[in-house]
Amino acid sequence: MSSSPAGQVAEVELIPDFASLLRQHQRMVFTIALHMVRDPMAAEEIAQDVFLKLHQELRSMKSSAHIEFWLRRVAVHRAIDYERKHRHDPNVALEELQMPAKEEPGTDPFLARRLQALVASLPEKARAVVVLRYQEELMPEEIAALLRIPVGTVKSHLQRSLAMLREKLGRTLGEVSL
């Protein structure tokens, strides 16, 4: 309902050039891929493919929000495709996981790595839901639109994943009460 001239101006949004979009969204796309496939080299390959696809499709993009939505969806689906092609044991050992590039002060690096490993062991759809919810801070409705699944399915994936993570984390760390 933006019938005012200001609203009309806002609708005619100029899309930034490809290099600006790349620099703006590279962290998001790379990290989605990294948390989905758990391999930095594979994550870079997936992220590169996602941006090359964007380069081809840029003319069909309607707005910056559309681009962001599109990038998240394509990154998740490319990561799932990669996983299916290079299927291996989802129960990743801690040693296989890369250390984060920078440790945030106040966070427990061991707990963070353990959580990453546990998230990586989730089924692909549940993993995508958890990554989009806690990395991208998306609401269940947004995740449902992005993954094209019902909102109820997103919520049940979240509940079951959190329950499983809490149980596995408690089993591993014993004394941790989350």
């Binding site: 990290t31 984060p100 590039a101 966070t107 990453q116």
Partner: peptide, 11 residues
């Protein structure tokens, strides 16, 4: 803890 563990990282 999940938000902290799954934070965005530089490529």
């Amino acid at each position: 803890e999940l938000r902290a563990a799954l934070k965005r990282e530089d490529p």
